[in-house]
Each structure stands twice: as C-alpha cells, then as structure tokens.
Amino acid sequence: MKNDFTNTITTFLHLQQKQNPISILNYQYLTSIKTLTPHITCLAVHRNLLYAASLNLINVFDLSSHHTLIDTFNETSTSGFVKSITFSGSRVFTAHQDCKVRVWLITSSKTHRLLSSLPTVKDRLRRCIVPKNYVSVRRHRKSLWIQHNDTVSGLAVNKKEKLMYSVSWDKTFKIWDLSSADGCIKVWKMMDDQVKRYTLVSMVGKQKPAVNALALNSDGTVLFSGGSDGTICQWQDKQNDIVLKEKLRGHSGAILCLVNVDDLLASGSADLTVRIWQREKGGSSYCCRGVLEGHEKPVKSLVAISGGGEDDDEVVTLFSGSLDGDIRVWEVFGLV
C-alpha cells in the first residue's frame, strides 16, 4: 500500500514537471571592475566595449582583453553627471546634467573624440531670430524649443528609422535625425500640416509608487516597470490595450534599473542586490531564480550580453554598476 502511494506521488510530480517544465539556471560571480571615481550612473556595451559613466567621467573597458581600461573621456566637470549612453555606428551619444547631448566619435585606436553638442551652435543661431521658435519654460522664461532646459535623463536610438530620442527632467521628449547627408545632427519635430504625426497611443495603468525603470522584452510585447516600493509590474499588450499581467515581489528597496535579455529579467535595487527573474517554460509568468549579492551601495545600472560561453545560446553575461563605484561581472548559464 505504501509503495503504491509513493508511486502515485512520483507519477503525479513527474506529470506536473512535464506540464510545467522549469529551466535549470545557474549563475556565478566572475570579477569586479573598478572605475577611477565612485558613483556609477550608467552602463552600456557596444562593439565589445563596456562604457561605465562615473560622475562626469566615462570609462571604457575592452571586454576582449580582460576588462582592460583603454580610454577615459568627458573630463569636463561642468557637464555634470552622465545620465545615459547610446550608440549609432561609430558615434557615441551621451546625456548630461548640463542639459546637453554630446556626440563622440570612436576612433580606430578605440579612443573618443568630441564631435559636437546637441543642439549645435549653428542650429541655435539659425532659429534664435524667429519668435515662434521659443517656448515657455519654468519661471516664466522662454527658450528655443530645440534644446532641453534641464537634465537630459535618457537616450535611445531607433536604428531602423535612424532617429534618436531624448527625454529630460524638463518634461519634454525630442526626436533627433541621425541620417543627414552632411554628417550633421539635426533636430526636428512634426508640424500640424504634415502627414506624419506623433500622438499618444495609450496610458499604461497607474502604478501608485514612482516608476524608476522600464524595460521591454525582445519583441516589444511585454513592458516591465520598476517602482520605488520594490515591485516590478509586467504589462502586456492585449488588443491595443496595455493590461497588468502580474507583479513581481522580492526586493526590499526601490527598483533602480531593469534589463531584459532572452527569457531573463534582471533588476537592480536600493537594497544592494540584483535579482534574476526567469520566464516559466511555455508560459508568461516570471519567477525569481537567484539573488546576486556583494554591492555595498544601491545598484544603479545593469547591462547584459547574450552569448559568450561555449554555447552562446545558453550564457548571459551581466554587468551591475553600483553607487559604491564597483562594477561586478556575473555569468548566468544553463538556460534550456
């Protein structure tokens, strides 16, 4: 009788595992990278180079050469903190606290040379004499609409359309044309008399705490938002309506950064940890598969690279940057 009961339970568990298989996930801490100054504000990876912004400095590490520091640029302290980094070909775009976007060229020797600041002086001079090019800003002052009037907090490049988007604490969203034939960067906006217009599609349901971070999955159908209460919300597009799918809980501090790669979601928090979430096999829900510890201050930035191991499809390299100035390198593997 006892053996029959044991066999029944074993068969039941086997069927449950077959119906809801869970991937085997392992992770390990590889090494730590130190910057010249503390306080990591953002991380980015491009062409096997790791960019780490620390205060106003941008440190560049060669990932193919044991994370060797090969360049440091933007030594001008008046630019303030670097808030975001993005790329288009051999150009690097950086967002700064002094309201500017700077454009850098990656040279053949992997050093970086400043090309211009956005908007360019030429663009400002060309528009400054026309009154309609001015908009009202805080404290009843007016400014050219082509320039930000507060910290530029985020950048993103649309490679297909050759556009760059910038957002700022001045509550504006700007679109920059990267495809001009003369090599210059020009900013533009859609006018009312043009066929193409940018309109608000929908409002994502309210998340009561402040939202500090966003991430999209690879096909753009799932949006993750990280709140100041330590909760991650998963939103899905259903018949042109964005609905809340689930809430992921586990962090004891505010979510400060999110990154999604393949079926994994990584979250950095003010509780000094990074959590790894994995989508259930054949499903859409996520569960926490690991907690990465070791940082001494809040984790401010994350960046992930898929591949790099013996089986590229089963390895994700994760970089976590903290306000303690430490960049920790992790390897997540065993994805099946």
Score class of each variant (00 low, 15 high):
S79W: 06
I106C: 13
R138K: 14
F93R: 06
C128N: 08
I129M: 07
W169A: 04
F81C: 11
N149W: 01
R47I: 01
L118F: 03
D150T: 02
T68D: 07
A44M: 03
L115I: 15
R126H: 07
Q97K: 14
I146N: 05
N59F: 06
I129S: 13
K160W: 02
G89W: 09
L55I: 12
H46F: 08
H66M: 08
N59P: 02
N149Q: 13
D123Q: 15
Y165A: 09
I70H: 10
S117F: 02
R91Y: 06
K110I: 08
V103R: 09
Q28R: 15
V157P: 10
V167Y: 00
R126V: 01
H140Y: 10
R141F: 05
I33D: 10
G154A: 15
K100P: 00
V60S: 06
I70W: 09
S109W: 01
N158H: 13
K162P: 00
K132F: 02
S109M: 06
E75W: 01
T107F: 00
V121T: 13
S108F: 05
D170Y: 05
T72E: 13
R126Y: 03
I106R: 15
D98T: 11
R102F: 11
L114Y: 02
N133E: 11
I129A: 11
L163E: 11
F81K: 07
L125R: 13
L57Y: 10
S168T: 05
K160M: 07
K83I: 00
V92N: 08
T35W: 02
H66K: 15
D71G: 03
S84Y: 07
R141T: 07
K132S: 14
Q147N: 06
S108M: 09
S168G: 13
Q97Y: 12
R127E: 04
H148L: 07
T151W: 13
M164W: 02
I129Y: 08
A44G: 11
S153F: 05
Y29D: 12
S108A: 14
A44Y: 02
K162W: 00
K100I: 03
I146R: 00
T68H: 12
K171N: 10
Y51K: 02
L63W: 04
Y134D: 07
G154K: 05
I129V: 11
S143D: 12
V45H: 04
S79A: 04
S116H: 04
P38D: 11
I106T: 15
N74H: 08
V130A: 04
T35R: 05
Q97C: 08
T111I: 01
H148P: 09
G89I: 11
Y134F: 15
K110G: 00
Y27S: 15
H140A: 13
